[in-house]
């Protein structure tokens, strides 16, 4: 087991405390995975194994959940995760071009991470903010009416 992904006592206590909030231990799985992802940036297989032990379920059950949700990452991803909406409203307002612009600027294609591990680029279906298209989501925060200039600014700010 990779030493780096061994859960420390404090984290284990947090996860165990979670189980008290739910009627079954299995129900605590999603919040537990969120905590792990916050800590490591992705969900390492070692952590999955340990969560399975803590929650008294099979490792396959954890695997089923982490592979089902596309927002759980099974491999290391960039520090900043950029999602570009590619649905109709955003594309009419230039969302598609934004995606190309970002890809070119970061020198990655969609679903990839930059070499320095800073940025990951993804597409996302409709985010429900069509009135302010085009929309991108960076680390969970919405950015509206995005233009290439705005992206330049944002990328410099994020470093």
């Amino acid at each position: 087991m990779n030493e780096a992904f061994v859960l420390d006592e404090e984290l284990k206590n947090r996860l165990t405390a979670l189980t008290n909030d739910y009627s079954t231990k299995l129900a605590a799985l999603l919040p537990a995975l969120n905590i792990i992802q916050d800590k490591f940036g992705f969900i390492p297989p070692e952590a999955e194994q340990q969560i399975a032990e803590l929650l008294d379920i099979f490792p396959t059950q954890v695997r089923e959940v982490t592979t089902f949700y596309s927002l759980f990452y099974n491999a290391p991803v960039g520090h900043h995760k950029i999602y570009v909406c590619y649905n109709l409203s955003c594309c009419i307002e230039g969302g598609g071009k934004l995606l190309h612009y970002l890809a070119k600027k970061l020198r990655v294609s969609v679903n990839e991470t930059t070499r320095d591990g800073k940025f990951s680029l993804y597409r996302t279906p409709c985010t429900g903010a069509c009135e302010k298209a085009p929309v991108i989501i960076v680390n969970g925060a919405y950015h509206y009416n995005v233009t290439p200039e705005y992206i330049d600014e944002l990328l410099t700010k994020l470093g």
Binding site: F58, T60, Q61, R63, E64, T67, F68
Partner: peptide, 8 residues
């Protein structure tokens, strides 16, 4: 508990 559905 050896096999389970994966992905979606």
């Amino acid at each position: 508990g050896v096999i389970q559905f994966q992905y979606r």
